[in-house]
Design a protein around this nucleic acid. Structure first.
Lengths: 227, 227
DNA sequence: CGCAATATTGAGTAATTTCAAGTATTGTGG
DNA sequence: CCACAATACTTGAAATTACTCAATATTGCG
């Protein structure tokens, strides 16, 4: 059971600087709330923690020299992210929707000494992450734009959706550009695909960030073309 | 330092059946040689081991219901593959080129008790795997066919290439279909791209499976379009 | 040597991107 | 609170890329 504290240190200027890493570390587990736009770490930063998302949404990104960007993953509640390779983080991690985060010292992942239970939990999360990324491969390499967008909406819906009458509602805090960079599409293609789903009565958008799934079956069909 | 034994049990009929998993396990580490075409495990199999590649090439694949296939990774010498999620493997693993394999019991990954050094080594391999997959994301989502093929050749060249005069030679034991399914392309596009690289004097193919890199610089340029 | 499997090449097509407006939405200073 | 600027999203048309289908060539194996 985790106690989620909204510490007072949530202001943008503090959060933006990832002050977390420079704080005196009294315990091995820190609870913090990060505001939208805050950065948890940059690519190349020394990795001292892995992060457990209790609420909100994080975004892991990687940028190629020529500016092309890839969103590696979104961190939703329940996810543990920021697994380092060697001593450094290999992605940027930013807050897309105000998030309560538990920071676990990296040593808890690396050795079971002291807290074997957390060690096991983090290890299992890392292995789960590998499987999740393999799913993402299928998405990136072997699905059409329509299937990608439908799969994405379905995944978010299943993870964070709430029933609303016969429908399912959820918020989409990330931008169309984030979605495009996650799915390997352009912003225009993502937007067009949303429009088609709307025209077909599969979803409805209260605002561009608020989705109502009207026909889950149709969305499921759209997520995996038949043949 | 590892001693690589070519055990006598290399015949196809034994290797094909992944007999390894049903053998009495006297030790926690087994050395085995698997012939081309052999299967180490299927998706859904109970995962008792992770596999360290000493020589040869393995292939990890995943298949969608509608038959679309994704090659998740190739296991080259030095790689450790087959990290399970829960108790089951989530990919198929087949041998593309006769391979010497060390099977480590899964327990060695899961707990440091007994052999903390191997535990650490396997854990680090899992984290390295996450990073490698993130690189693969950029490839699948954000590169053109030409860039994908060039990146792929470069990666294999760096991992397994041998100098030959001023050039670099290596073998490409996997089929064009495997390469296509790894890069998210069709066989035809892969073949065409090879032809272009050949016409441009970047590579030369002794046989379709034997590559000679004539101009590493040009290959490097091709792997990351300028802008 | 001949056959089956694999790889290459060609032509036409479908899908997504690119470029270019246009329309909302959001945030900011007056 | 409003006007304006900036940002984000949507839509359209043209261009490009990779795919599909089809035929041919090559390779490897029995």
């Amino acid at each position: 059971m985790y106690v989620t504290l909204s510490s007072e240190s949530t202001s943008a200027d503090q959060a933006m600087g990832a002050r977390l890493l420079s704080q005196p570390a009294a315990s091995h587990t820190q609870h913090r709330t990060y505001a939208t736009g805050a950065n948890l770490f940059h690519e190349g930063d020394t990795a001292n923690h892995v992060y457990e998302v209790k609420s909100g949404v994080l975004r892991l990104t990687r940028v190629l020299e020529n500016g092309r960007r890839q969103v590696i993953a979104f961190g939703l509640p329940g996810d543990i992210i920021g697994f380092p390779n060697g001593d450094a983080h290999h992605t940027d991690c930013d807050v897309v929707a105000t998030a309560e985060i538990i920071a676990h010292r990296r040593s808890k992942l690396e050795t079971g000494a002291g807290d074997p239970e957390t060690h096991q939990r983090l290890l299992r999360a890392a292995l789960r992450e590998i499987t999740a990324m393999q799913d993402h491969f299928m998405m990136l390499a072997r699905k059409s734009a329509a299937e990608k967008v439908a799969s994405f909406l379905l995944a978010i819906s299943n993870r964070t959706g709430a029933p609303l009458g016969n429908y399912t509602a959820f918020s989409l805090p990330m931008s169309r550009a984030d979605i495009a960079d996650f799915l390997g599409l352009t912003v225009e293609t993502v937007s067009r695909t949303f429009s088609i789903l709307r025209k077909d009565g599969v979803i409805s958008l209260e605002t561009p960030q608020t989705v109502l799934v009207l026909d889950t079956g149709a969305l499921l069909d759209a997520s995996q073309s038949e043949d």
